[in-house]
Design a protein around this nucleic acid. Structure first.
Length: 257
DNA sequence: AATCATGTCAACCGCAGTGCG
DNA sequence: CCGCACTGCGGTTGACATGAT
């Protein structure tokens, strides 16, 4: 995979790295450590730009990097962190166990984001998707007003605030929590290919009444009423605990509730 | 079997932040 | 304070893999 090799105007190689190049870079860094990426390629005998070397080292060659499929726990962690941090992949990566920001970003964009969308959750706001409705809400905790749509982006803190609001109102909308839980409790891909196929079958089930009804689309009026309850107090942590309660070990309890 | 669509992942690009002279 | 060089980050691209038709 990757890109074909080519050479740019400065004689710098681009594209896919060869095993030999990897070996050279690793050998050099092991011996001299990382310093001055700009001059490193020359010193290491590589026809690459420093930026390319840095990226290769950080995302691929650096020792201890965890690669391959994401576990369910890791995916939960990503969703949880994304709700708080937004698209700050480097910050998310720091909280994860030796996953690179690039890896997390790729997995989010190719998999998690789409899964959330399929389940009627906006991946940017982590809110239920609303019927083409622009929702204006006063964000007291963040000290500002914000206008969001189901497809809009918002600042991480704003997103967290909205999510807390969602959590605060969850008692009156238990099915919302159920829907969110559902995403996290789904049998995960990582266990086996069979699981993956079954999940895909479920998600792409054609003609089943469950399919369309399963999306959580709030009616405009319902949403308006919900958003009007602005005098509630929320905190970040309660939202997270609500969002994730019932996952893994608590799965049984969640079903009961 | 061929073609098309979608998923995955490595790598590139451009910009913002930071440090230094 | 300003400009430059360097680093780090997030968004995007491109090639290959895999599945669906």
């Amino acid at each position: 995979m990757g890109r074909k090799k080519w050479v740019d105007g400065d004689g710098m190689k681009k594209g896919e790295w060869t095993a030999e190049e990897d070996q050279n870079l690793v050998a050099y860094i092991n011996e001299h450590g990382v310093s001055d990426w700009r001059s490193l390629p020359k010193r290491a005998g590589l026809q690459r730009c420093g930026k390319s070397c840095r990226l290769r080292w950080l995302n691929y060659l650096r020792p201890g990097i965890k690669r391959g499929k994401f576990t369910r726990q890791e995916e939960e962690e990503i969703i949880k962190l994304h709700a708080v941090l937004g698209n700050r992949w480097a910050a998310i990566a720091k909280e994860m166990d030796n996953r690179t920001d690039n890896d997390i970003k790729n997995h989010w964009n190719s998999c998690l984001k789409k899964r959330l969308l399929r389940k009627g959750i906006d991946p940017m706001t982590h809110k239920p998707i609303i019927n083409n409705l622009t929702v204006t809400t006063t964000n007291e905790e963040c000290g500002s007003s914000s206008t969001t749509t189901s497809s809009s982006t918002s600042s991480p803190s704003g997103s967290a605030c909205l999510l807390n609001k969602l959590a605060a109102g969850i008692s009156s909308r238990q099915h919302v929590l159920g829907r969110i839980k559902g995403i996290l409790l789904e049998p995960r891909i990582t266990s086996s290919d069979q699981d993956e196929k079954e999940e895909l079958k479920r998600d792409h089930k054609i003609g089943g009444a469950e399919e369309d009804d399963d999306f959580l689309i709030w009616e405009d009026e319902e949403v308006r009423r919900f958003m009007e309850t602005d005098d509630m107090e929320y905190e970040t942590t309660p939202y997270i605990s609500l969002f994730y309660e019932g996952t893994s070990s608590d799965r049984g309890k969640a079903k009961e509730s």
